[in-house]
Amino acid sequence: MRFPSRLLAANLFFAGMVWAAFYVVTTLITVAIAVFGTLTHSVWEGATQVPRWFALFVGVAMIREFLPLYIAHGQTRRQFGAQAAVTIALYAPALSALLVLGYLLETLLYNVAGWPQELARAHLFASPTDVPLVFLEYLVEFLAWIVAGTFMAAAFYRWQGGGLLSIPPGVGLILLGEAAIGTELQLPFIQIPLDVTSTPAVLTALAGGIGCFLLGLAMTWSIIRDVPLRNRLA
């Protein structure tokens, strides 16, 4: 069983299908707002709150589903850890590229229809067409959310109910990533503003994303390095 190429390809294919459906739904909502109300802002901007949760559960699946599968097929835990890191490092920018594409397609639609594509909150980028900064912002965000998912999933896989203790440091990883891009964290019923007085520098944001990525991997590895395989029926 080849890893990470097969796992990466399967997840990228699934992400592409989810993105296509997500884009269609978002576009329909955009048109509905324009027809039945007043459209003044980028709808895609608000919709991008959802993909971060998708990224989180990709991290969860990496441990919950694929760790026992690949170890059972002959991978060592060290091999899995190294190859999972490669998968995440390639998967996060792929997700970021899909969000960039969503912004560009929205820009095309708004220009054709004559709608204003204003942004409702602070970002690294000032315009949805500022591709490098749009890509960087969501890359940092996805790296943080995916490794938070792997860390918390590893804790729950190893200690079951004891994994609840991993939630605060897992949220801390997410906060670190969001703070690196100077945005805000929106959780169910909770909104945590992390806006800074000025837009973070590109190198600051990138360093924050890489640091969060490496920290999350180290925290996950400390749990899975000798984790016993569990009976899936347990």
Rank of each mutant, 00 (worst) to 15 (best):
W44F: 05
H41L: 04
E141V: 09
A92C: 15
F57C: 07
Q75W: 14
L98V: 02
V134I: 11
T107S: 15
S127A: 08
D130A: 13
A144K: 06
G59V: 02
G81M: 14
A89Y: 09
T107Q: 14
M152D: 00
V60G: 03
G163L: 14
E141G: 02
T48K: 08
F156I: 07
S96G: 06
V131D: 04
A120N: 04
L136R: 03
I88M: 08
P51N: 10
F142S: 07
I167F: 15
A144D: 02
L119D: 06
D130G: 02
R64Y: 15
L105C: 12
I88E: 08
T150G: 05
L143K: 01
W44L: 00
P68K: 11
W44V: 02
P132Y: 10
A92S: 13
Q79W: 10
R158D: 09
A148C: 11
L95H: 11
N111F: 02
S166Y: 08
T76I: 11
R52N: 09
V50I: 15
D130S: 12
V86S: 06
T107N: 13
L143H: 03
V100C: 09
Q75N: 07
I167C: 04
L90M: 14
T48Q: 10
P116C: 03
N111G: 11
I71N: 05
M62R: 03
A89R: 09
V86M: 12
H73K: 14
R52E: 08
G114Q: 01
H123M: 04
W53F: 15
P93Q: 10
W115P: 05
W115E: 06
L143Y: 10
A94Q: 00
L139S: 08
A72Q: 14
W145D: 03
I63N: 05
F156P: 04
Y138F: 15
F135H: 13
L109N: 11
A97Q: 00
A47T: 01
L90I: 11
W115G: 00
Q117T: 01
I146K: 00
V147L: 04
T129K: 12
G46H: 01
A155V: 01
S166L: 09
W145V: 03
G163Y: 12
A84C: 12
S166G: 14
E65G: 11
Y110S: 08
A148R: 07
L119K: 03
A126G: 15
A61M: 13
H123T: 06
D130H: 13
L119Q: 08
T76D: 11
Q49F: 07
P116I: 03
L98P: 05
G149I: 06
R52I: 07
P51V: 04
Q75C: 08
F80E: 05
Q83P: 05
G149W: 01
W44E: 00
I63E: 09
A153E: 01
V50E: 02
V58A: 12
V171P: 03
F151N: 00
M62V: 09
Y138Q: 09
A72I: 02
P51S: 11
V100T: 04
P132L: 06
Y110V: 11
